[in-house]
Design a protein around this nucleic acid. Structure first.
Lengths: 193, 193
DNA sequence: TTTTTTATATACCGATTGGTATAATGAACC
DNA sequence: GGTTCATTATACCAATCGGTATATAAAAAA
């Protein structure tokens, strides 16, 4: 693996575990087995490294979610597919996904937040789009698309967070098809059904 | 106001805006208009300051939510009351609530995360308790209390986050009774109703 | 073969990090 | 009046922060 990739991986490990601001550049290059000028050669700055990290991880996620959301089916099936895709992505890229969530919740005046901000915007629009596409199935939503989008991602992300929270080191992340179905069903039909 | 309070307020402002690790001790004391030994006199360390900040904010929230959750009513009414209480608390203590959420999502090896961790545990148990108390109304939950608890807080927190996100500086945080009702109704009966 | 470009290391920069030793202040107590 | 104690400031600490000037080695281009 080349040094660029080694640096991105080392940075992700550390950012995920301790957060962007708690990690020093020296720590990153030590873990990657290179020296500082190598990092600055590839990324220009610490924030540039973060930017590249986000681009690498986000493009993969966007692709798989968009694909799921564009399938020709009714809303329950689409939401199930999207949820499945999110959970699979989170399982395959657990560190990246949870680190992105952490950035999402971090302070607005933080440099790292400003860097994720456009990605979050994109992410949010992607989910709202799903509900807008389903407008014909849901009748007049009276602008509730956004409420739905927020609720839906809130549920998914919080489940991802909580499952990951319960894991011991090296244990595999997993949300079963049954649980996924139950979560989506609950979102669609409530908890009484 | 005494210096202890001034320090807590200054710290909250800065932690909220930039995150715990991005804020230096010097910055905090400058904003509070005191000097470093004063901070170390009252709190012993930067993490001690955080600890005190969390204790101050959390105890108020816990009280109001527990009160709402113990009212003698059916589940929909309890959940509505709890949601209302959360939104009101978040409105009155926006900085604290969002900062706590940020810590919730921050890396596990971060010192600040380790400090909130017990508070989060408590918070989570509080919500699970609501659904356990409602067991008689929901029939056999087959252990779904936790799923419900995660889903419910996921929805509430994500709504709080998103509303706050849309605010311009100094604009007031507000989630109306109607929206609160809609959110809880959606959680209970799904989006089709 | 010489020159240019890519990629890396050594050694350093000023600024800031969390934290403290020492001393001064003022009020309360003896 | 003297002593104690709570509270605060000045001035400092070693360590780390993000970042860079300079040199070097290898490879590609001329």
């Amino acid at each position: 693996m080349d040094n660029r990739e080694l640096l991105l991986d080392a940075a992700l490990d550390l950012f995920y575990a301790k957060g962007y601001d708690a990690v020093g550049v020296q720590e990153i290059v030590d873990r990657a087995g290179v020296t500082k000028p190598t990092l600055y050669y590839y990324f220009g700055s610490k924030i540039g490294l973060l930017q590249n990290l986000l681009e690498r991880g986000y493009s993969i996620m966007e692709k798989s979610v968009l694909e799921a959301s564009r399938m020709n089916a009714n809303l329950p099936e689409v939401l199930y597919k999207v949820a499945r895709e999110f959970f699979d992505y989170a399982a395959d890229h657990e560190k990246f996904y949870l680190f992105m969530l952490a950035l999402f919740y971090s302070g607005r005046e933080n440099e790292a937040y400003k860097t994720v901000s456009p990605f979050i915007e994109n992410y949010y629009n992607m989910i709202v789009g799903i509900f807008e596409n389903a407008a014909s199935q849901l009748g007049n939503m009276r602008g509730r698309q956004k409420l739905f989008a927020v609720g839906f991602t809130g549920v998914l992300n919080h489940h991802i967070m909580t499952v990951s929270y319960g894991l011991t080191e090296n244990e595999k992340f997993e949300i079963s098809n049954e649980t996924t179905y139950e979560i989506v069903h609950q979102f669609l039909y409530g908890i009484y059904s």
